[in-house]
Design a protein around this nucleic acid. Sequence first.
DNA 1: CCATCATTTCGATTATCATTGAAATATGGA
DNA 2: TCCATATTTCAATGATAATCGAAATGATGG
Lengths: 113, 113
Amino acid sequence: MEMKAIVNALAALAQDSRLAIYRTLVQAGPAGLPAGKISEITGIPPSSLSFHLKELAHADMANSRQDGRFVIYTANFSTMNALIGYLTENCCGGNPCTPASSPCCTPTEETPS
Amino acid sequence: MEMKAIVNALAALAQDSRLAIYRTLVQAGPAGLPAGKISEITGIPPSSLSFHLKELAHADMANSRQDGRFVIYTANFSTMNALIGYLTENCCGGNPCTPASSPCCTPTEETPS
DNA sequence: CCATCATTTCGATTATCATTGAAATATGGA
DNA sequence: TCCATATTTCAATGATAATCGAAATGATGG
């Protein structure tokens, strides 16, 4: 994943409404949710929601499929995975998430015993 | 880490110049870099750089300390850690980075064997 | 306390983003 | 076809962000 895609993904999530939308989609899992339901859950009016969903989709953080007269949106987990991977590898001092330790970022070598 | 802080942290990184600055700081480690050096490395003019550094500091992604007539900036690793933690826990379908598996995000239960 | 260097603030400009009602489009069923 | 429902586009508005030269501020050593 290249720099530009990373900035797009970060920008997609760096907004109250969109982060809320994305979290809602994550909770819904692969089944996803129709736009109307997302609007209902988040309280974001349809036209605003559509704007934000387009942003998320454009950043490849969400996908959509037509189901009858509904449009079902789903979180794109692989992009989130790639984003976390990038942050871990490029923004954590070269100490990627070592197995068996939840905290990922440690500035220098100094592997905590 | 609460929602607002997360959005701030994401917004701080969701910008070409600032992501570049942050990565530069990460590479520099806890020793950090003076503003002038960052400007030199990234090619961002001092006034723009100062603007972006303030953004990063305000989002608690970077810290500064005075050293003689230099101002040394350092990446705030703990905030990045918290950010990665949030994304992993809240945006990855409840499958936080299980030890001994690098990919964090899997939509449903289905723990890969 | 002055000359010098490092950094920040100011100010003006331009661009981009967020919001939302109303109208348009698409879909499926009677 | 025609209606009801779901979603998107349009358009207008207000808000926020990015850029950078020039001037101001802060720090140090002589």
